[in-house]
């Protein structure tokens, strides 16, 4: 398992260095405007750059059709899937923590954290978890192109629904639905308090990752390379 992650780190080190440095620049880019952004925006931005690290590794392997090579190594198919998840969390989470910690060295960045730090961290974690849970099964089943098509497809679907809603006058319905979800989350937050809410979100993200991991293993077991 560790060998697989180690292999990815060695073979993908230039990709990682390039993408990783870009994540390091995140604080500076956000500090360019006069008005400092809310901390959650900052954390989400760093998080987004960091989740690109494991995704770019998977994309690279897929692009070179090197999955067959990985499969010929003395590992099981399940090991390969698990290493994608563990490696994803390890690389993206680790680098995200490192970038956020480094950002604290700059006083301007430190100031950002004075307000809403907990919610920002929870938001960053959620984004990381959601991305990993969604991207990995997709790439395992359809490869990187499949993922891109999937994202484009979702966008198109959204647009079609939106236009459809506009045409049929159902836009209010969508708005109401979205609003009711937000309200439900909000009232749940109020009921359980910030700590309980954080636990629920973390549990949800973990559950989603677990389901995604199980599904990916199942998908990958029967894939012909």
């Amino acid at each position: 398992m560790w060998n697989l992650i180690r292999k990815d780190l060695i073979l993908g080190r230039w990709t990682l260095i390039v993408n990783g440095s870009m994540a390091l620049l995140a604080p500076f880019i956000l500090l360019i405007p006069d008005e400092p952004p809310p901390v959650i925006l900052y954390v989400l931005y760093v998080g987004l750059m960091c989740t690109m690290l494991p995704v770019s590794l998977i994309a690279k392997e897929d692009k070179f059709s090197a999955t067959a090579f990985t499969c010929s190594l003395p590992v099981t198919r399940d090991d390969i899937v698990t290493s994608r998840y563990l490696g994803g969390w390890f690389i993206a989470g680790g680098w995200m923590a490192a970038v956020l910690a480094l950002g604290l060295l700059a006083p301007a960045v430190r100031d950002l954290w004075s307000n809403g730090a907990g919610g920002a961290l929870l938001g960053g974690l959620t984004m990381l978890g959601l991305t990993i849970a969604i991207v990995i099964p997709f790439t395992i089943r359809f490869g990187m192109n499949g993922l891109l098509f999937g994202l484009v497809g979702l966008q198109v679907l959204g647009m079609v629904l939106f236009i459809g809603a506009l045409a049929t006058g159902g836009l209010d319905g969508i708005e109401r639905a979205v609003k009711s979800v937000i309200d439900a989350v909000g009232s749940y937050h109020e009921r359980v308090g910030p700590a309980g809410f954080a636990v629920t979100v973390i549990f949800g993200v973990a559950l989603l990752n677990w389901v995604s991991w199980k599904a990916s293993r199942r998908i990958f077991r029967t894939r012909d390379l």
Partner: peptide, 10 residues
């Protein structure tokens, strides 16, 4: 394998 496929840039 008849078409060795290692990552191209290593």
């Amino acid at each position: 394998y008849d078409e060795p496929n290692f990552p191209h840039d290593v």
